[in-house]
């Protein structure tokens, strides 16, 4: 296997409130390879967005801070990089697309100003050249009338166009990696499909690597190459989309997939996972999923399983499904 472009190793992120600290992301490890889309999937609050933000030190700190781990990129650990060097990575090597495009764009400046500001943060070019680059990025993001959008403000754009502007902003310095944090959640279904299509095109035509954070398994199935399933701050299973979807080994991923309604199957109630997600304060020494797990064994309550390679996936489970 080729070397990973980006490697997250044992990343833990904690919250520090009123004298107490809890880790809300624990021991997260994954690799991202050239020219692939890795989906990070899990329910709301499982720590997937926080993981993404922490990789570029964009989490609101305080109260959130990385408590351990490394994020290796280009031979350097992004978490210990000096501010000035980190700034050179942000947007230029790795850029991000956010969930709510309407509030993610500065309302006081035109789309053009935002884009040229981003260009000139990394490239020493004059205004006219920065404008050319920006217009090209808008076109690449699938915007039909780049010149018109260039002069508009965020409030004049629809949700879909805003998200495309966000994509243009992420593309404008031609990064190697794009982290897309729920890029389609705030959009309606047809626009969702267009945005995902755009991400696929970027991967194919530019050989980009994309980390796609989502809670939508349909999205994962349609665009991702590999998937990492997160539960309560931990990755419980990671593998190729085909493999995980065909036969999930972790009881949680298995349950998650069974909870998706299928078109054409006989009308019956969906299978739900009993119980609820533990609070960060309730994390015990054992497996985080043990209290809700139907395959639970005595040792699950005592010892936390490690993420172990089984077949070509990695699973964090003492009693995985075969």
């Amino acid at each position: 296997m080729t070397r990973a472009l980006l490697g997250v190793e044992k990343l833990s992120v904690g919250v520090h409130v009123s004298g107490l600290s809890y880790d809300i992301v624990r021991d997260v490890s994954f690799d991202l390879y050239q020219n692939e889309i890795l989906a990070v999937v899990g329910e709301s609050g499982c720590g997937k967005s926080l993981t993404a933000l922490s990789m570029l030190s964009l989490q609101s700190s305080p109260p959130l801070r990385v408590t351990s781990g490394v994020v290796m990129f280009g031979g350097k650990d992004l978490l210990t990089l000096p501010r000035a060097e980190l700034r050179m990575v942000r947007g230029k090597e790795i850029s991000m697309i956010f969930q709510d495009p309407m509030s993610a764009l500065d309302p006081m400046f035109t789309v053009g100003t935002l884009l040229t500001t981003a260009v000139r943060a990394h490239q020493n070019v004059n205004k006219a050249r920065a404008e050319e680059i920006s217009l090209a990025a808008l076109a690449d993001a699938g915007i039909e009338d780049p010149r018109r959008r260039f002069g508009e403000y965020a409030f004049q754009l629809s949700g879909g166009i805003s998200q495309r502007v966000m994509i243009a902003l992420a593309l404008v310095n031609n990064p190697k990696v794009i982290i897309a944090d729920e890029p389609t959640t705030a959009l309606d279904v047809t626009v969702q499909a267009q945005i995902l299509e755009r991400l696929l095109v970027l991967k194919k035509e530019r050989g980009m690597s994309i980390i796609l954070i989502t809670h939508n398994l349909g999205v994962v199935a349609s665009v991702a190459d590999r998937v990492a399933v997160m539960y309560s701050g931990e990755i419980v299973e990671t593998g190729s989309v085909a493999e995980v979807f065909r036969g999930a080994q972790h009881p949680y991923s298995h349950g998650l997939l069974r909870a998706v309604p299928r078109l054409g199957s006989a009308a019956q109630s969906l299978t739900a996972i009993p119980g609820r997600v533990p609070q960060p304060t309730e994390i015990s020494a054992g497996c985080v999923f043990a209290p809700r797990c139907e395959r639970v064994k005595p040792m699950c309550h005592e010892m936390r399983p490690a993420l172990e390679i089984r077949r070509s996936s990695a699973v964090r489970c003492h009693n995985p499904i075969d």
């Binding site: 500065d106 006081m108 992420a170």
Partner: peptide
């Protein structure tokens, strides 16, 4: 400074000084 757009600018690699003096100040 707590607005989402500040995070977007940071993610784009815009310098803190520029974010403060141009974007946050304007609002």
């Amino acid at each position: 400074l707590g607005q989402d757009f500040v995070r977007t600018l940071r993610a784009a690699g815009v310098s803190e000084r520029r974010i403060h003096f141009k974007h946050v100040l304007r609002s």
